[in-house]
């Protein structure tokens, strides 16, 4: 299992400082819940999709859409059926399939959901995990909390690998032929596999604690930092941008 989420690509988004970028994404995510014209929401969706296309290519850019397709279908099927008020626009016989208000509501929900999806995805695609971590620290996350985050990423690939091996090992221990397919656990084998997986993972905990202490975690000196975030052109400029983008957007598209 790959645990990286960063996708190497091109464009301004990669130069945008992680701290300012995080603020922008948060501000925009909050903004989509404010009274905006639907056109504004769709402009945001278009901007983020085009941004993803430019940064990583079309194939990659369509991937988040595929991931939420199932939910979108449910939304389109259920929202009009359960939202009954207003004037009918679609009907079968005497049964009202959808009202004008329901469709307007659906339009906003779909655009909002797609917008948030693409905003968050763009952020993690264009920001290396180490930078995200540094940005969180800059915003006040404690070193130990940030360390838990880093260590978790260290262990994801090895635990995933050992899990596959454990499944295989248990598969080879059965005394008769059995259906086995990767990634699927059969009910009778769940407890053995899960127990082995947890024991193997738990056994690594004391070693990790030893290693952390042996490498000086707990010392009284102030920790220094090997990595740091560098905002090209000055951090102020980046933050100015991150305030301006949502503000301008809101001023243009608000309905107040």
């Amino acid at each position: 299992m790959t645990s990286g989420t960063f996708i190497a690509g091109r464009g301004m988004l990669y130069l945008f400082d992680a701290r300012a970028k995080l603020l922008t994404v948060l501000a925009l995510c909050v903004m989509v819940f404010l009274p905006l014209r639907p056109l504004g929401l769709w402009v945001l969706v278009a901007a983020t999709v085009l941004g993803a296309w430019h940064a990583t290519g079309l194939r990659q850019a369509l991937q988040p859409l595929r991931a939420i397709l199932f939910l979108l279908v449910i939304m389109i099927l259920f929202t009009p059926l359960t939202y009954r008020d207003g004037s009918a626009v679609l009907r079968v016989g005497s049964f009202v399939l959808a009202t004008r208000e329901a469709l307007e509501n659906l339009n906003v929900l779909v655009a909002r959901f797609m917008g948030i999806t693409y905003l968050c995805t763009l952020f993690i695609w264009t920001t290396p995990m180490a930078d995200i971590n540094l940005a969180f620290r800059w915003y006040g996350l404690s070193y130990k909390a940030a360390l838990v985050f880093t260590l978790a990423f260290r262990f994801i690939p090895s635990i995933a690998e050992s899990f596959v091996m454990i499944q295989d090992s248990h598969a080879l221990r059965t005394s008769e032929q059995q259906e086995i397919s990767r990634g699927t656990v059969h009910l009778t084998d769940i407890v053995p596999t899960v127990t082995s997986a947890l024991v193997v993972a738990l056994k690594s905990i004391p070693y990790l604690a030893m290693s952390l202490e042996h490498r000086g975690l707990g010392r009284r000196e102030r920790r220094t930092s090997y990595r740091r975030l560098v905002a090209r052109g000055g951090l102020f400029t980046h933050f100015l941008l991150s305030v301006m983008i949502p503000t301008v957007f809101f001023l243009v598209f608000n309905t107040i």
Partner: peptide, 13 residues
């Protein structure tokens, strides 16, 4: 065909 993985813990539970 049996396969003894290098890590014996994979089979132990």
């Amino acid at each position: 065909v049996g396969y003894l993985f290098q890590n014996p813990d994979y089979g132990i539970f």
